[in-house]
């Protein structure tokens, strides 16, 4: 297909064809990554700016590496998440970046919509590396990539996402991505974290994890922000992990050799028991590589022009 998009902001507005094209491109990128010499001249002279308002070494490093492998010049601007009233506004920063004539900007920011806000101002392409509670498209793409690597085409398969869905951009992006690809998705958590209005994502909701597990091919545990307890969203870690923690015993209810995913970092023995966490760790190395491949694919598609490394 001919790539048209200037930005990657959310899975919600992407077509199945685009998602499939990204996954296909990422597959090629992964092969390149596995080569002994993994430096390409493809994006020589192109500049990629990493603009991270939230600390995330893992995601930032992944983007940096993806850019470097493709031969782009990458600059990282780590901005301390200062109070809103202080410091330079995102608008001013955008104007500065515009003047720098960057080709691509990767943004992570605590406000939902900030990636779109930036993309509307910049001529440069923008990749959303996580905006508030809205979207984290590259995470969803690397998750589906990993799932399909393990299980083959996900169409018709069943995925259960359990945890703090309300506050999770990972859950939102995964819900959109998976349902577009024909996956049966169920979001699970207590009513305070999976309120009825989440039905707007178009997937199933339930508060009963044990009832949701049978037949699940993939179970994804979300990271629980421990401070949610202080806001009264759940009474205790003890009760939370009793109801929604993934244990080996509980996972037997799927009746399958299901795989478990977690966007990390994990709260061991809260959303995931130690033994299950170990099995997730095994997948994490693969996830890291897949993350770089997905991000290479996106950077390449957005600013690679016609220089064809991908057949």
């Amino acid at each position: 297909m001919k790539w048209q998009r200037k930005d990657i902001l959310a899975i919600e507005d992407m077509s199945v064809e685009e998602i499939r094209h990204i996954l296909h491109t990422a597959k090629v990128m992964k092969e390149i990554l596995m080569r002994p010499i993994k430096k390409l001249p493809t994006l020589k002279g192109k500049s990629v700016v990493n603009l991270f308002y939230e600390a995330s070494t893992r995601t930032r490093t992944s983007f940096e590496m993806a850019g470097k492998v493709l031969g782009a010049d990458t600059t990282s601007i780590a901005v301390a998440q200062s109070s809103v009233s202080k410091g330079e506004s995102l608008y001013d920063t955008a104007k500065t970046i515009q003047a720098m004539r960057a080709d691509l900007v990767i943004i992570r920011h605590s406000s939902s919509g900030s990636a779109k806000f930036l993309a509307d101002i910049l001529d440069a392409g923008v990749i959303n590396a996580g905006d508030g509670q809205h979207a984290h498209p590259t995470q969803a793409l690397l998750d589906i990539f990993t799932m399909e690597e393990q299980l083959g085409e996900m169409d018709g398969k069943k995925v259960v996402i359990v945890g703090d869905v309300l506050h999770s951009r990972v859950a939102r992006s995964n819900a959109w991505c998976l349902q577009k690809l024909g996956v049966d998705v169920t979001l699970v958590g207590p009513p305070t974290l999976v309120p009825v209005e989440m039905a707007g994502l178009g997937v199933k909701l339930t508060h009963d994890l044990d009832g949701a597990l049978p037949g699940a091919d993939v179970v994804m545990a979300l990271r629980l922000q421990l401070e949610r307890q202080q806001s009264g969203l759940f009474p205790s870690l003890r009760e939370y992990s009793h109801l929604y923690g993934l244990t080996t015993e509980r996972l037997k209810k799927t009746g399958k050799q299901s795989i478990v995913l977690h966007p990390g970092p994990m709260n061991r023995n809260v959303e995931i028991s130690d033994d299950v966490a170990d099995s997730v760790e095994a997948l994490i190395e693969r996830q890291v590589t897949n993350g770089v491949a997905i991000r290479m694919a996106l950077i390449y598609l957005l600013i690679g022009g016609s220089g064809n490394v991908v057949a």
């Binding site: 939902s112 905006d131 508030g132 809205h134 989440m198 039905a199 707007g200």
Partner: peptide, 13 residues
Amino acid sequence: RRGVTSARMGLKG
């Protein structure tokens, strides 16, 4: 306003 739209966009309701 809290509702389907706020939930979809991840804007606190």
